[in-house]
Amino acid sequence: MTAIAVLRLPLGIDLSGFVQLLQRLQVPHRINEEAGEQVLWVPESMSADVLELYQRFPEGDPHHQLEAPPPLQAPRRPSLALQVRHSPITAGVLLLSLVVGAITWLGDSLSMVHWFTFLDFRVSGEYIQFTPLADGLAAGQWWRLVTPMLLHFGVLHIAMNGMWYWELGKRIELRQGGVNLLGLTLLFSLVSNFTQYYVSGPTLFGGLSGVLYGLLGHCWIYQWLSPNPVYRLPRGVLAMMLIWLLVCLSGLVSLMGFGEIANGAHVGGLLIGCFTGLLGGLWSRRKLAA
C-alpha cells in the first residue's frame, strides 16, 4: 500500500484531536517529524478524503460516531482565519504587497516607487534616468533584486496577482512548508527580475506575476512527478495561464491598450518554477519509494 504525505504542518499545531478522529474511522496513518514540521502520511487511495476531512474537522470531533462518518462529498471550505493561520508566509507576502501598494499609490508616487524598483532612478523633467545595476549593488542596494515583486500598478494588477498568489502559495506552504515557499518566492522573483532586465533593459517593471508563473510551473511539474491532492489544480487553470502567456507574448495585450507586459519575467518565472518542481517532485517520489 503506497503512503502519501497529505499534511505538512508546523510543530506547534495540535493534531491530537484529528488523529483521534482518524483512529475512530480506522484510517491507517502515521505522523513523523521532518525539517521542523509534522507530516501526516495516509494511503494514497484515501489522501483526498483525509485532506477534505481535515479541512472540515482540523481539531477533530469528539461527538463523531463511527457509524455515521461525515459527508465528505460536500465539505465546507475552511474559514479565512483558519486558512491564514495555516498559511502565514502566503498572507505575509500579500500583506507586504498591499503595504507597498499603499505607500506608492499603486505606482503613481514615483518618489516612493524608486525604493522598490530593480534599478534606482531619478526623474529629470519628462525623462527617467536609471542608475546602472552595478552601481546600485555596489551601494549595497541588494534588496532591489527581489522587491519589484511587491510593486503593482493599478487596482486590477494587484487584485489579480494577489488572488493567484493566495491560491498557489497556500498550496505550496501546506505541502512543503512556509520556509520553502518563502525561498521559492524569493528565487522566482530574482530570476524573473533578471530575465526581464535582460530582455527589456532599464525600464520600470514590477508585480508578482513572474513569481506566479514560477509557482504554477512548480506545482505543475511536482504534481506530474509525485501526484498529491494539494497540488492538484482545478481543470483548465494550467491551460488558461499558459494561453494567457502566449497571448501576452504575441503583443495583442499591449496593442489593446493594457500597457506593456513583463513577458521576460513571466517566461523566466515559469522556467525556473518547472525546474524546482522537477527537483522537488523527484525528491518526493524517491522518499515515497524508500
Rank of each mutant, 00 (worst) to 15 (best):
M1G: 10
R8T: 10
P10S: 00
L15A: 00
F18M: 09
Q20D: 15
L21F: 09
L22Q: 07
N32I: 03
E37Y: 14
Q38C: 04
V39P: 02
L40N: 03
W41N: 08
M46Y: 01
S47R: 04
D49Q: 15
L53S: 05
F57C: 02
P58N: 04
G60D: 02
H63I: 06
Q65P: 06
P69D: 04
P70N: 11
L72E: 00
L72Y: 12
A74E: 15
P75T: 08
R76D: 08
R77N: 13
P78N: 04
V84L: 13
H86G: 00
I89T: 11
A91K: 02
L94P: 01
L98D: 08
L98V: 04
L106M: 14
L106Q: 14
S109L: 13
L110W: 10
M112N: 06
V113F: 09
W115K: 06
F118V: 07
F121M: 13
S124W: 09
G125E: 11
E126M: 04
Q129M: 02
Q129E: 14
T131K: 12
W142A: 13
W143H: 15
R144N: 10
R144W: 02
T147N: 14
T147W: 11
L150E: 05
L151D: 04
H152G: 05
H152V: 08
I158T: 14
I158Y: 02
G162W: 00
Y165T: 07
W166N: 06
E167A: 06
G178Y: 07
G178L: 03
V191T: 11
N193A: 12
Y198W: 15
G201C: 10
P202L: 07
F205M: 07
G207M: 03
V211C: 08
L215D: 07
L216A: 13
H218W: 10
Y222S: 14
R232H: 15
P234M: 00
P234A: 00
A239M: 12
M240K: 06
L242Q: 08
L242R: 09
I243P: 06
I243C: 13
L245T: 13
S254F: 09
F258C: 00
F258P: 04
G259C: 14
G259T: 12
A262M: 08
N263C: 15
A265H: 09
G269R: 08
I272E: 00
F275V: 07
G277A: 09
S284P: 07
K287G: 06
A289S: 15
